[in-house]
């Protein structure tokens, strides 16, 4: 038989402090900020007149991806001023997602609710703030709660739905989508890693060859998590851009 004991959920999610109030999640978040800063710092120091190569190429590709793939698609040319914010968001989330497949770290910081919640809260403040700044307090909430073109009688239904949708559900869904996807990926990797280990160490020798099956799945899922890390960062960023664009230009 296989002596397989799946650890409690807290054992694969909660980490002891490396020092006072600073655990692995905090370390990954700090590393993400530091690596992001270093990448863009080094990229900025390279000559801009020659064709970009190496780290500058990475940084410029990321900038162009955000500008062309996110900002221009959701806010148009007027939204290019939001590029630094969206670029920071995308880079930071991606660098927090990727450690899920990096040996020794093997934990996406976004698989803990704190990081997605903090970012979603900030996005909520930003898009509501931007909407109020551009339309005024009354104008913004009027455009959110009383969408134009809806028969007045339907406002009884539409206004509470819009309030819940735009003000409450958006940040919640933004945070939960990122968190749940990364947590699911992390649990899947843990599951197949434990199963692989158990089969390879099974007392019953006939079970040992079957260890390659979960190991193959583990390798496949590790590759899949690379895609998920990018995709979730992109989704969070583009939804943020959509929310900001909607708040700033409600007619769109």
């Amino acid at each position: 038989m296989i002596a397989l004991e799946f650890p409690p959920i807290n054992e694969i999610l909660r980490w002891k402090d490396l020092f006072e109030s600073f655990n692995k999640i905090s370390l990954i978040a700090v590393l993400a900020a530091v690596i992001g800063t270093v990448v863009f710092l080094l990229a900025g120091r390279q000559s801009a007149q020659t064709a970009p190569r190496g780290i500058r190429n990475v940084a410029e590709s990321t900038v162009e991806f955000i500008e062309n793939g996110v900002v221009m698609q959701t806010m148009g040319r007027d939204g290019l001023g939001w590029t630094p914010f969206l670029l920071s968001l995308f880079t930071f989330i991606y660098l927090c997602n990727v450690p899920g497949i990096i040996p020794f770290l093997q934990m996406p910081a976004t698989a803990r609710m704190a990081l997605p919640a903090a970012l979603a809260l900030m996005v909520w403040v930003v898009y509501n703030g931007a909407g109020i700044k551009h339309q005024g307090f009354g104008g913004y909430f009027k455009s959110v709660l009383f969408p134009p073109g809806v028969p007045k009688a339907l406002y009884i239904l539409v206004t509470p739905i819009e309030f819940i949708s735009a003000i409450i559900v958006r940040p919640f869904s933004l945070a939960v989508r990122l968190f749940a996807n990364m947590l699911a990926g992390h649990i899947l990797l843990v599951t197949f890693a434990l199963l692989t280990e158990s089969l390879f160490q099974a007392k019953d020798k006939i079970l040992i060859p079957f260890g390659v099956l979960p190991m193959g799945m583990l390798i496949f899922l590790t590759g899949f998590e690379v895609l998920v890390a990018f995709l979730q960062a992109y989704i969070f960023t583009i939804l943020t851009a959509v929310y900001i664009g909607g708040a700033v230009h409600p007619e769109h």
């Binding site: 700090v30 993400a32 863009f40 940084a59 410029e60 900038v63 670029l87 930071f92 903090a118």
Partner: peptide
């Protein structure tokens, strides 16, 4: 603590990106 340690570095990264890193690259 995780909220603090994730929000803080991101805020610093955002400020650096907004006022130093991105303008220089751009």
């Amino acid at each position: 603590k995780e909220l603090m340690w994730t929000f803080g570095p991101f805020l610093i990264f955002l400020i650096l990106m907004r006022y130093f890193l991105f303008p220089r690259l751009r």
